[in-house]
Design a binder for these strands. Structure first.
Length: 151
DNA sequence: GCCAACGTTGGC
DNA sequence: GCCAACGTTGGC
């Protein structure tokens, strides 16, 4: 079992949206490193911190879990869509996605500010300056630590 | 809205 | 295959 953190802008798709739909296909990832994590390393049942970015209080707001094998991201084939990539074909898909399933919404945000105050979390990717990866691995100990911080 | 960080693109 | 230009991300 591995642990992850995924970012989402709550204006676009929040933990409340996640809870409302139950399961969501995580389309639109157009970064090779993030794609490789989904394609090569994620397994069904992996636990995932759900992080709100680009908002008033950035931080971890809940838990989801990996609910599918990786499969081609069909939004890359939609010429009208914003995720269109002419280099991705149905014969040779360049981008993949997985499904995430809602597990839990925290009573309170575990804010980035709070995360930065914890010596034990010094090595989390989310604390690195200029971090832009939307999907990152999380160490088991860090995952548990975040859970202990939730309201 | 600013700006630093950084991945991607394209000219050479 | 280098690297400058560009676009995007995301905290502040």
């Amino acid at each position: 079992m591995k642990y992850w953190l995924i970012k989402s802008e709550p204006d676009a798709f929040s933990i409340d949206d996640m809870e409302a739909v139950g399961t969501e296909s995580w389309d639109g990832v157009r970064n090779y490193q993030a794609r490789n994590f989904m394609r090569d390393e994620m397994e069904i049942g992996d636990r995932v911190l759900f992080y709100h970015s680009s908002c008033k209080v950035p931080g971890v707001v809940g838990i989801v879990q990996v609910a599918s094998r990786p499969y081609p991201d069909h939004t890359a084939w939609d010429e009208r869509g914003k995720y269109y990539d002419p280099k991705s074909t149905e014969e040779n898909p360049r981008w993949v996605m997985v499904d995430f399933e809602f597990v839990e919404k925290f009573d309170e945000v575990v804010s980035l500010e709070a995360i930065k105050a914890e010596e034990a979390l010094a090595e989390m990717y989310i604390r690195r300056k200029g971090n832009r990866l939307s999907i990152t691995p999380v160490e088991a100990a860090h995952f548990e630590y975040i859970l202990a911080m939730r309201g």
